[in-house]
Amino acid sequence: MLEVRNLQTTFTTEDGVVNAVNGISYSLQRGEALGIVGESGCGKSVGVLSLMRLIPEPPGKIVAGEVLFQGRDVLGMSMNDLRALRGNQIAMIFQDPLSSLNPVLTIGKQISETVLLHTDRNREQARRHAIDLLNIVGIPDAKNRLDDYPHQFSGGMRQRVMIAMALSCDPLLLIADEPTTALDVTTQAQIVDLVMRLRKELEMAVIWITHDLGVVAGCVDKVIVMYAGQIVESAPIREFYSNPRHPYSIGLLGSLPKLDSASRQKLNSIQGLPPNLIDMPDRCPFLDRCKYRIRDCGMKSPPLRNIGSDHEIACWVDVGG
């Protein structure tokens, strides 16, 4: 359904060109859930913003690549076609629900706006549809809350409103960009539960972006790990957690304390800091922090290669293999 090929996005800044996304490729089937994991600045958000062409140009620029959604080329589309696609077939929810909602419009207005734009329902029907949506996402007393403003809702409730908006046109793909990062664990559990239930009911595909390896473990089919604008590992979920192969993935999993580990065992942290994305040389981006580096790693950036059963890594060494 969705196919991303060699997508590259750069930002021109005073200090030079930042290669935020540096040639990522992946595909997504109908109804599939994909997790994209990485630390801040690794390009995970810019990657999905680029595929909806939501990158501000300038300073941003999609310099290469192809995005096919149901066989149609998104990057070459006219603005009108793009508008028909966004919010209708591909919907998105963001990290901070307060700043993504308009504070001076009631949430009823904001939800029905999408419905009015993309379907031929009239105002009254759109309003009723909005009530249904709020019921689906679990907002109590939906009928009366429709005329409330965003500030009258709590963080978790705002995220539910965002989800209701995203679902308003029955999208085929829902992109969730760190939707639970600003929320507490008990609220996070509610939201994860909600999205995954809706995914089954509506047969949506989901791209779930997060820095939390715990959240994706329970809810996606496939996981992609990004580092410095590149995909370093891609694997089915169980395979990834039982058999991580890229040194960065291994480091990430090692730096999380396990709930069943012995008391105060030292964590295997990754040394050093992520690289600067300006003018990156052609070598493995993880080189400086890697325990397993060999001479080749400094010569050329490793391509993503298949190491069996849908499992891909970008590493010359292949630590687990």
């Binding site: 709590s154 390896l213 715990g214 473990a217 329970g218 979920i237 169980r238 957690y241 999993l253």
Partner: peptide, 21 residues
């Protein structure tokens, strides 16, 4: 409610989802 970074455990767990805020 804590997500555990192990899909095997996640699949077997039952969650207590608290209502409300």
């Amino acid at each position: 409610a804590i997500p555990v970074h192990d899909p095997e455990i996640e699949a077997r767990r039952s969650r207590i989802i608290l209502e409300g805020d």
